[in-house]
């Protein structure tokens, strides 16, 4: 009986210690050091919020770079991967269809140059990134849709590529598309 009483007391004590001495400290720290007071960071275009930096969003318009397939249609309120086994015949058929569709929208592209990440679903269904290679294969399509120069778009890609000290270089698709749109905005203003 005495042990049960101690159990109750110590559990409540731990709750108080953890909330006051740990959760609230981190919460305060986040408010101090992050621009968004600990909330998910967002990106803006022309002063308007257009998405969270670290949450991928769907792009299907011809004038934007596309991200990776998502098993949950980029639902940021949930998340999920396809959970398909590498040997699953149904899944492989789906990948085949994705390859055909991608090649159809990019007729100039050779099959062997298509990076697999553009036809396989990410783990979270919210992957905000693609590799520089996966962006390069899309340049021609966007240049055609926007009537922009290929070299100009290639330059934007170089400028938005992140090169971490360790790990592979990557591109945030939303950042890249915002850079594209704001390039046009600036041109119009200028």
């Amino acid at each position: 009986m005495k042990t049960i009483l101690i159990s109750i007391k110590i559990t409540v004590a731990f709750c108080i210690i953890l909330f006051g001495g740990y959760v609230m400290v981190l919460w305060g720290f986040a408010r101090l050091v992050t621009p968004n007071e600990g909330q998910a960071e967002v990106l803006t275009l022309d002063g308007k919020v257009v998405g969270a930096t670290n949450v991928g969003q769907e792009f299907s318009d011809m004038k934007y770079f596309w991200g990776r397939p998502s098993a949950v249609d980029y639902n940021g309120g949930g998340s999920g991967g396809s959970n398909k086994a590498v040997s699953n015949p149904e899944y492989l058929k789906e990948v085949g269809v994705r390859i055909e569709q991608f090649l159809e929208s990019h007729p100039y592209l050779e099959r062997k140059d298509l990076p697999s990440e553009l036809v396989t679903a990410s783990a979270s269904g919210l992957d905000p990134h693609i590799s520089p290679l996966a962006a390069e294969v899309q340049i021609q399509r966007i240049a055609d849709a926007r009537q922009m120069k290929v070299e100009y778009i290639a330059e934007i890609i170089v400028n938005t590529t992140h090169k971490p000290l360790v790990g592979q270089p990557y591109i945030n698709v939303l950042e890249l598309n915002i850079a594209l749109d704001s390039a046009i905005l600036n041109e119009n203003k200028g």
Binding site: R68, G81, S82, N83, K84, V86, Y91, S116, E117, T120, A121, S122, A123, S124, D127, H129, I130, S131, G167, Q168, Y170
Partner: peptide, 9 residues
């Protein structure tokens, strides 16, 4: 093998 993996990792 990129199915079920994230590009940044």
């Amino acid at each position: 093998s990129m199915e079920g993996k994230e590009v940044r990792f």
